[in-house]
Amino acid sequence: MGVVAAQVPLGTALTGSAVTLAGLRIAFPAPRRREPPFTAVDGVDLEVATGEFVAIVGPTGCGKSTLLNAAAGLLVPSAGRVAIFGEPLAGLNRRAGYLFQADALLPWRTALDNVAVGLEVAGVPTGEARARARGWLDRVGLAAFLQRYPHMLSGGQRKRVGLAQVLIRDPEILLMDEPFGPLDALTRQFMGNLLLELWGAARKAVLFVTHDLEEAIALADRVVIMGAGPAARIIGEWRVELPRPRDIAEVRLEPDFHRLYRDIWSTLRDEVAKTYARGEGPL
């Protein structure tokens, strides 16, 4: 096998771009007056092609989630441009589904009703919405937990409900913010494989934020590394050309995986050191 990974130039334009972030700067007002605003990210150029799986990796507090929120339309950038399928984004991104880091299920709805809610509010009759929700819960392996409320489910099960809740609306873009962060190693592997399986069936554009480099390489087509904040920017991009379909556990044993990991880690390590030096703690 030849070279499976190559560092690609920053901001490479791709045909059929699903998400375009260009010259993005996002600043938050300071908690006290007379202080300058806090700039989370600055000068970020990023494109996600249709059907492409892009993972963003970076140290804690570098503004990875901020980027996702801008792509989702939940945050208005201070400068720069957000375009979705070539059109400037105004308001919420209606073509994207967002899987949040924290628990985001409606606690007063059962697993079934949580998955069905996206269809219900779109005007699908309740009976049909429920039937389709049942199908999705079956696909994420929760057919036996339809009537459970979120607090009765484990962390991994809640994430699977969240995944079904997002995917049932068939979004063209999938934004994921450290979705498997709080889960244990085995559950993460299971969730990663589940995600790849579902993604393989209907190739959405995915923007996946994680602090776990191994997870990023195992899942993505392209890994984007962000520098330490404030005013964080993208400091490197690597194409991952490991063959698909992949198995999360097995792909980690490939020599190419290790070569790529070492390569990216040497860049990431310096950024982590910077974060540490600022006393912001571990990844």
Binding site: L74, N93, A96, Y98, F100, A104, W108, V117, G118, V166
Partner: peptide, 28 residues
Amino acid sequence: SPTVLANARMLGMSERQLLRHVYWPSAL
């Protein structure tokens, strides 16, 4: 919860639907 609210928005709820499906059950 701001996350629940953001999630409900991303799932396509209008302001009126937020009132009915998120604010009201939470206030209850």
